[in-house]
Design a protein around this nucleic acid. Sequence first.
RNA 1: GGGCGCUUAGCUCAGUUGGUUAGAGCGACUGGUUUACACCCAGUAGGUCCAAGGUUCGAAUCCUUGAGCGCCCACCA
Length: 1033
Amino acid sequence: MKDIPKTYEASQYEDDIYELWEVSGAFTPKIDSKKKPFTIAMPPPNATGTLHLGHASMLAIEDIMIRFKRMQGFCALWIPGTDHAAIATQTKVEQILLEQGITRHDLGREEFLKRVHEFVEASRGTIRNQIRRMGSSCDWSRERYTLDEGLSRAVAENFVKMYRDGLIYRGHRIVNWCPRCSSTLADDEVVYKELQEKLYYIKYGPLSLATARPETKFGDTAVAVHPKDNRYKKYIGKKIAVTTVLGETEMIVVADSVVDPKFGTGVIKVTPAHDATDFDIGKRHGLEVRQVIDENGRMNEKAGKYAGMTTREARVAVVKDMKKLGLLIKEEDYTHNLSLCYRCSTPIEPLVSLQWFIDVNKPILSARSIKLKKKLSAHGNVKKEKLMSIKEKSIEVIKNGSIKIIPDRFEKIYFNWMENLRDWCISRQIWFGHRIPVYYCLKCMEASKEASEKCHFGSENLDNVVSREPGIFVSADRLTKCLNCSKPLKQDPDTLDTWFSSGQWTFATLGWPEKTADLQYFHPTSVLETGYDILFFWVARMIIMTTYAMGEVPFETVYLHGLIRDKEGKKMSKSSGNGIDPLDMIAKYGADAVRLSLVVGSTPGNDIRLYEEKIAGCRNFINKIWNAARFAMGSSLSATPENHSIFSQSSLKTFVQSPIEHIEKKSKKYFFGDDNVSILFKHSTFFISDNLSLSDKWILTRLQRLIEKTTNDLEAYRFSDAGLGVYEFTWNEFCDWYLECSKVQPHPQVLQYVLMTILKLAHPFVPFVTEAIWKHLCPSKHNVSSNAKNKAFTDESSNNGKSKAFATELSNNEKSKMFATELLNNGKSETLSSSHRKNQTFESESLHQKECFSYVPNLLIASQWPQYDKKLIFTDEESDMQVIFNVITGIRKLRAESHVAPHRKIHAIISGHKKSCESIESQKHIIQRMAGLERLDVSPSSQKISDALSLFVGNVEVYLPLKNMMDFETERKRLQEECKKIASYIQGLETKLLNKNFIQRAPKNIVEKEKEKLETARSHLQKIEEQVRSFDS
RNA sequence: GGGCGCUUAGCUCAGUUGGUUAGAGCGACUGGUUUACACCCAGUAGGUCCAAGGUUCGAAUCCUUGAGCGCCCACCA
């Protein structure tokens, strides 16, 4: 046992333990109708991404929840996956191509997509392995990818469904156009940047107006003023003659209340084709939409001689020409927000184009209301249910509590966003993604235009094909020929917004549109855990898509974590060089330390600051547990270690008694956990009947309280509190006090029980180290791992470090070889790795068939969460022990203050109430050892010892006769200081208690408490004063 | 312009529904290495809880106002 290394080297255990978990089948829950499901759909990282701290924090928190629920006996499922991240990925590949001087258009759609897919395949393994390294206990057998076959099917089906319900339409709208990406962007994909620019005051016939974009004036089709602006009332509805750089023209003046009379001259030019506000004005007044900028951000032929220039160039030219013609009145500096593409920071060009939209305001019959209606009509009770739009529905599910957002302040933010939501543009002009399942027959479309006859397709719904407009077919199945004229069809070239597909993540990953057992059992998911920065991007879209498609909520609780910042509170980024790479940290401190550092000190919705010292601190804690366990396992607790070492064969035998097997067979409940300890506790009064010392009862009581607190905290999503609680208990109570006590007064069974319970409580937070220790405590016979790996685990306790190191090296080598091959081949030929992976899947699947947990070989991951046990609460002993600790601390303090050499053994005399003296007497050896006493006399009768240091703890008096080495003056001063402090404290209490209002209005128990406080303080004071007087005599 | 969050020890943060002589970790200082652990142990110092009002017997905690910092939404032609 002594061969267990002194420090826990995380890197030597983590990979092997992870593999053991994975192969054991513990990650893969089997549907069990007797158990409650607990499901989390992992927010899918980008398939081409690498792990950053945001992911790390998400994985840590979700894994805590999953492990906790799994141990509690839930059927806990955590579905991992990756996102194709359409624009991000396409941009990345385009950049790589650009380095070779190729554009996507050079390659053509098909070839380009091939390259993208190759790129994704090659890099997808990276993020997968990084997720593993965090210790994430997710079910890899159910892993999904937003672009895999099943999800693509779901996306297409849902599109068709929405189109059939009239929610999806095609129309000309003004959109945010990124000239570089050549694509539309959703409103929230636009970012704003403050910029210094010029505001130009220009002449517009009889009027003058201010504009920042003079180059768009060729697209002007009106001038607008505020309807109540008296200055311009006479022009409203009239046409005015305007001189422009391209000659004379006429312009109508309209009145619209969006115009701010205070800004500029109170007159604006209306350019419906190139400004969202103007587009709306144009719509209200039936203005012409005249496009003058093309999709590449250049002026088109309508701009006359400026055609072909970029908008920037045109602006300069136009201003110059206006000056010449005397049309420019003045220029003003001003700052405004320029809209930019959130991906490439290119300025956005608002353009009008033909796009697909989701109507968010159209009332629909949701699946649920349809079901409800059927039910009601069956009862002859047809009541018209209010039809809700998807927007209203999405608001309702939060309002009625079907979904709870933590912290709840985000609910308000959500409402605000949802209420202002405009129709959602879902088409993107990029190639990578889910292609829109719409097929056009150009001939029929053309024909219908010419004939302008009523479309004979009507709204006929063919088998899985919907057609509402001539020549347009919407279908989830690939169509090639027109159903009307049999001419070849052309599929819409656009793809869908990536959030359209990720909005379906919770149910599509479980098999929708098939009615799979998984879908029925695991959906709605329990918790969605993600960063608050994607509340709108993703969370809101999931609510929209799921309430619509499924008629149920996607999740019951949304837990939002904060963003990770550096010590100064700055955002971490590659450019500012303040980023911490979680993988570096894992290599240096271990995954457990990284996980813990991300959880401790974090509260939902608030950003947390992370820095290396914090991670190091967490690593120290992990090492502390390791050593506590090492002590418990290996220390010779008495002269004959074999008898007392709690994990020696003999004691284990007595500990693990035969009833266990019996219980296991008899009660199915226990198949989940293999842990003998809690079973024993449930079914015997083992400890209680045994001789428990005061410290045993104390630690057992404290432990019960910890179990209760940790469970409550975890259930209330207070992860930081839960983690800190375990941290503090382990370090400050178990290690600092109980382990020290057990050096004097060993009780192996209690020690083991407490240690094992700590391991369980800590496991969700620091799974690796706890599992590694558990392996030592409950060595397994049915290890499913390969021999080499097995060796790495079991040998370390039995032999010297060398053989262990060798074994680990072996397994690491084996693995690194495989990963190296994978990396070298860059995913092209993945014979080795994929066959390896397949074997694993096969193994775990075969385990999955059986009662998976009965196969889990004594793994902590599958053990049962500790139960709070009232029988193990000893209130009196808890406070008695506390007095003893106070005595020890007090003596230590006196020694330190009086500079008593640490080695010097001293004498102490304790007196006080009979009961206290009894318990002190019983713990005499502990006090002696921990306070460094040579001799300790305890007597109930109070005795004055004048030439001694004194200490008063509750009703206990402690004297340290140090005649020859104490400085009476110093001691007198110390005591007098103490008196002053207490006196002022007493005074405070007295005024409080003399206050009639307090006595009358405060609750009785509070008043009682205050009275008690006063009493003890008074007796304290009295005793100290006596002691001071004794110096004088 | 609208909204939200934060402000507690030198630093990073806890402080649940008002009742503690306001806590922890790191850092600092003093000492130690005692049959687990220097990734350790024992002890010390350090706070007008951002400010000003208010509610209350009682406020770090609730209300109002203000200041500083940070964030989100809308968007100015």
